[in-house]
């Protein structure tokens, strides 16, 4: 493997990892805060992607498409959280079935509204080039660099929101002791709605970011979850801080596997997940250890 091959694999792995991170972190936030698993995240990912496609098709700027890809799924998050209220605190099977049901409804709704035809979103013109390093004879696609930088900015903003803002303090308080927060007279229900908005919005924007590099159909919303699954388990289900390193490790490992074991490269994330589950069921990056 040459240095340029390694550098390219690194960029691809990081970009792929960052998209997985955005999707997974939205789920992780909801798991940590509410103890509920949102199995509909894949549907909101595709929803965000298709919103991006139609916004770009309407000749609006790509930045607007990203915003729409975040905002509309985030608004739907209020509805999903509302649907979950009656089963909150009950066995998690109920919330699992509801979020799965929402996922099917959303995917079928998109099929009804937009049809099942495959769609291709054009790359924004200013990002449709390559950053070349002549001395290394290597060219990094500008859009992949954009994915890394943009997602990293979101990750930083997300972290700052959590550690430096009042909303973040509330979120952390709910994660630590939800009942105590309720006793303090804080509107926990409203905070849950905001959590769902952010969680689904992150899924939506991940899809919007990925739209220019993948063919889109509504029914893909039911399979995206499989790609996020290893990230969540390797990072630790209720460990929000674990999602980023897990996504990056798996993204880069997968990219390097494509070079060394091409026929079996797509097994790598799942193999890593099984190994981690065996030795550290709480996740590789969880402080709880085994």
């Amino acid at each position: 493997m040459t240095v340029s091959q390694f550098a390219l694999a690194l960029v691809v792995g990081l970009a792929s990892g960052m998209i997985s991170y955005l999707t997974a972190s939205g789920m992780s936030l909801i798991i940590s805060g509410m103890g509920t698993i949102n199995f509909g995240q894949g549907a909101f990912y595709i929803f965000g992607a298709l919103l991006c496609y139609y916004t770009v098709k309407a000749e609006l700027p790509f930045a607007v498409a990203l915003l729409v890809g975040f905002a509309v799924p985030a608004l739907l998050g209020i509805v999903v959280e509302f649907l979950l209220r009656p089963v909150f605190g009950l066995d998690m099977t109920y919330s699992m079935l509801i979020t799965m049901g929402v996922s099917y409804m959303l995917c079928d709704g998109m099929s009804l509204m937009w049809g099942n035809t495959v769609r291709a979103t054009p790359v924004p013109p200013m990002l449709n080039g390559a950053v070349r390093i002549a001395s290394m004879n290597i060219a990094f696609p500008a859009y992949y660099l954009f994915i890394i930088i943009f997602s990293a900015a979101i990750a930083v903003a997300f972290k700052l929101m959590f550690t430096r803002t009042k909303l973040g303090i509330y979120f952390r308080a709910i994660i630590s002791d939800r009942h105590m927060v309720e006793c303090l007279g804080i509107n926990v229900q409203l905070l849950f709605s905001v959590m769902f908005m952010i969680g689904l919005g992150l899924g939506g924007i991940a899809g919007a970011l990925n739209a220019p590099i993948s063919g889109l159909t509504p029914q893909q919303g039911l399979t995206i979850f499989n790609q996020v699954f290893p990230v969540l388990l390797v990072g630790g289900l209720d460990n929000m801080d674990g999602a980023l390193p897990a996504a990056l490790v798996l993204g880069v490992a997968s990219a390097l596997a494509a070079i060394f074991i091409p026929t079996y490269y797509n097994l790598v994330p799942n193999v890593v997940m099984v190994i981690v589950m065996f030795f550290r069921p709480n996740g590789l990056f969880s402080k709880k250890g085994a």
Binding site: A9, I19, G215, Q220, A255, P262
Partner: peptide, 22 residues
């Protein structure tokens, strides 16, 4: 030279595309 199998559900395989290109 190499054989890459992708899932029919998979839409993100930049890692193999970049490897093939190199």
């Amino acid at each position: 030279l190499a054989s890459y199998r992708v899932s029919s559900d998979d839409s993100q395989f930049s890692n193999i595309i970049s490897t093939i290109a190199s």
